[in-house]
């Protein structure tokens, strides 16, 4: 059985038709249940790397394995489905559909992932359980997402990423919209959940102060080379 949740090798990617920007990456892997902080300044190719891992863009070369499956060999639709089944995504902010209820938002990925829905069991109960684990008040469940505070919204986003226990959580600077106290509380909750389910976490940030809480810290420039040709 594969122990790596995520495995990239010899990946190379350049945006088509744009001022030359090439990202090449020799080797990068995440073990099961491992938490990794990926540090990088803006423009270091973080977003491109996350898009590659999520399968919304395809590398020109190389393999990207998630839970043992090479997603570069999948069709576009199958990659979307695979992402829904296996990856939980947390954005920097504005994570939620503002017009949907909290429940709608948490259950949304299950809509595109039948397997994950099955794993979640009673989806509504699972969502409610996650909410209470994450310290969200009970009545928030049926509230519209845009009535919540930013901190609450981020916690709902965590619940959505965790529901149905995907193998990997991708978090793109999820704490940058929070103040220092909330950041710490947020990370506590996040680690609690990932360790409880042995979920791997790849968190991207430009803030090195968060480093001590992760199993491993990787700098973007250590794993990937960016080539830029100013046109």
């Amino acid at each position: 059985m594969e122990s790596s949740v995520l495995e990239l090798s010899e990946v190379s990617f350049h945006w088509p038709g744009r001022a030359k920007f090439t990202l090449s990456l020799r080797e990068f892997a995440l073990e099961r249940g491992e938490t990794v902080l990926l540090l990088g300044e803006s423009g270091s190719g973080k977003s491109t790397l996350l898009s590659l891992i999520c399968g919304t863009i395809l590398p020109n070369r190389g393999t990207i394995r998630i839970a043992g499956k090479d997603i570069t060999r999948l069709s576009g639709g199958a990659r979307d489905r695979f992402r829904a089944e296996n990856i939980g995504v947390i954005f920097q902010q504005f994570n939620l559909l503002p017009f949907g209820t909290v429940a709608d938002n948490i259950l949304l990925p299950l809509q595109f992932a039948p397997g994950r829905r099955k794993r979640a069991g009673n989806a509504k109960a699972a969502a409610a359980g996650l909410c209470s684990d994450l310290g969200l008040p009970k009545d928030v469940f049926t509230a519209k997402a845009n009535t919540l505070s930013v901190g609450q919204q981020q916690r709902v986003a965590v619940a959505r990423a965790l529901i149905g226990h995907p193998h990997l959580i991708i978090a793109d600077e999820p704490t940058s919209a929070l103040d220092a106290n909330s950041q710490a509380a947020f990370l506590d909750l996040l680690f609690q959940q990932t360790s409880a389910h042995e979920t791997a976490l790849l968190m991207v940030s430009h803030d090195p102060r968060l480093a001590e809480r992760f199993d491993r810290v990787v700098r973007m420039e250590e794993i990937a080379q960016i080539e830029r040709a100013v046109a």
Partner: peptide, 16 residues
């Protein structure tokens, strides 16, 4: 665009 990105991140296909 934001809304569509959220749908996509959750695994919605462009056709969706």
């Amino acid at each position: 665009r934001r809304e569509m990105a959220i749908f996509r991140a959750m695994g919605a296909r462009p056709v969706t």
